[in-house]
Design a protein around this nucleic acid. Sequence first.
DNA 1: GCAAGGTC
Length: 836
Amino acid sequence: MKLVVTEKNDAAQKIADLLGVKKPKADKVYSTPVYRFDVDGEEWVTIGLRGHILEPDFTPSMVYKKRGGWQGVTEEGETFPADLPATLPKPPFKKKKPFTEDGVELKTWKMDALPYLVYAPIKKQPKEKEIIRSLKNLAKKADSVIIATDFDREGELIGSDALSCIQEVNASAPVSRARYSAFTKEEITHAFSNLVELDVNLASAGASRQDIDLIWGAVLTRYLTLVKFAGYGNVRSSGRVQTPTLALIVAKERERLAFVPEDYWVIRGAFGAEPDAFEAPHATARFKVEAEAQAVMAHVEGATAATVSSVEKKKRTVQPPAPFNTTSLMAAASAEGISPARTMRIAESLYMDGYISYPRVDNTVYPSSLDLAETVRAISGNPAYAPYCKELLAKGELKATRGKKETTDHPPIYPTAKATPDDLAPADYKLYNLIARRFLATLSEAAVIEGTKVTLDVNAEPFVAKGDVLVKPGYRAIYPYGLKKDEQLPALSEGETIAFGGATCTKKQTEPPARYSQGKLIQEMEKLGLGTKSTRHSIIERLYTVKYIQNDPIEPSQLGMAVCDALDKFAPHITHPEMTAELEEEMDNIAEGRTTKAQVVDTSRNLLSEQLASLLPHSEEVKDALADAVAADAYVGPCPKCGKDLQLRASQKTRGMFIGCAGWPDCDVTYPLPKGKVEAVPEPCPTCGMPQVKVTAFRSKPRTICIDPNCSTNKEPDVEVGECPACKANGKTAKLIAQKNPRTLKRFIRCENYDECGTGYPLPQYGALAATGEVCEHCGAPMVVVTTNRGPWRLCPNFDCPGKEQDEGKKDAKAGAKKPAAKKPAAKRKAPAKKA
DNA sequence: GCAAGGTC
């Protein structure tokens, strides 16, 4: 039997399809899917891994006293470092540790152990145990093995890890490597009939990246976390990619802080008469000196007519955009309000459901094997695209735009099946729509815009009106994203006199450079070589979860700035993107055989050791800086009782947030907070003067609320929403009241006779609530209307209402029928049937 | 309780 190992299940299936003469048989080994088929009478099996199946980690080890010096030792008795650098401090000695003499364990997070952790041995540990089990099971029966993971450095490493698992159970089977960069019949057949050897050097280049990332990440993360301990689960991380990324954000904020706004004055005149009235600014767009602006105002004072001194028209064409790769998709989606991390989550599920092609690509050029017309036809079933698709297809041969990056591993992201708003949840459709329209745009003609520049003369003062009109929409007809509105000017001719309705002079200020949006940051990371297409979004998300950054456009928290400053001062190597550039260079050297993994990792360890040695003596300073930053981030306002700081805090028990006084335990002032992400807001409540916080509940827009439950903005009158059905069944009459608990701010419906009948329903926690007077047809609960900023939402509050499932079922059946036949409908992807 | 990189 021939065993073929791919990087993912998808690839295993595709390769089986392309190599098998007959349709491959889908099978399972334990819980892992495999594909069996015959080639010239020989049995072949393909199995897909799940990316890396092994993961490096420190081996259990400790530092102990040796005659004449100090030594690290692993559980297996291996000692490290080979030559202890003289700069290493003496480790402290503790009594009785599990496996050797007195010492300090490296597994426990201890500041004293960090200098040794730098040199601690690393071993590959199993990560995907189920896959490894299945792989070994197949390997035992294999006569030969073909590694067919992706054709890149990480692919070589994944393949090499798989091979080491295979050889644990079968050391004799011959091994070869298939290298392909597209799932086409020709490419795959060619790769499997021209097998090569696994590139061990390339794999160890990847392995050195793993080790270096782990060592630097672990040492610096532990340092930052331990230097100012803030409770378990409160990690302050650092890493080769995330820290330089944070530094970019901090540098931008510094630029903004250093920015000194300058005053300038803008003069705008009113011209023409309704309905052709329009405004135009003075030819000097910005007056830096007020007196000059006032002089112009004096010149035009009292004027009632303007002369058209020139009319210039210029046509310009705007070329249609290039096909989407991961980065450009994330940037475009980010501009539409979908974060890169969310974009990738949605894209992954659209891909799995067969709506779009593989979403992790660098390529921006459609391969010739992609049938563009067929794809247009496939999505033309969506009525919103139908007329445009028809036009495109009528043109005959389709010609697509080409981006700058051309690789052959996967095609750029394009739609693979039709979807309509009924098939997908709203956010999913929003992304699908962007991808489908972009695809059509790349096949379209350029847009032609006519720009008009009219110079108007008022008492010898020039005013300039500019207008832009789309004269030939081209791709703009299907791809309106980022489109400015037309600014139409009335038809004017040179020498014409029109009415002048006076001018206004406004004082303005220059603006600091803009913060990064998530999309812009991803593009900047790509430019600097930070992270990969598949990881950049998760790096940014990581910075949010450790609370180094907040909001979008992104601003650093005080903590983020403090971490960045501390590292930049004492361990600057980790804060610069050059660390990645240097690592890339070293990895090339390893791949080319000019150096070895051991050498590169050792050099990196020594460098980290130096950086740590410069960090450790300044721990007090770093600790204070972090403590101040954390306090500043948590500060919401002064305590009304004792005047100390009110702070955002996490409850130890529930992990929920609340506001507590820094004077605790002397001062017991606390305020409850609703569920969701909470941030401090500088402005106090306009109604009562207490501090406010910004609360972002799951999948909701942020809202700003006063922290005082007794503030009138938090009070809500009880609303009578109907009669209690349970009491009615018992022959009694009782009202159902919607109310808000003044202590917890939770809103719910309860029967006024609750103590006896126990009837209660949950309610959405915000939005204006109103009774409808109607009763749910399924369960008899009172229907209510909640109006949020997304509009009114009519709902039955009964969590167990039998009507809920029925509605979901109907929607599923309807959507399922429209799905592409090959893919199974995924129930979880459907839009929840809630808005009526 | 660490990173970054694959993929789900």
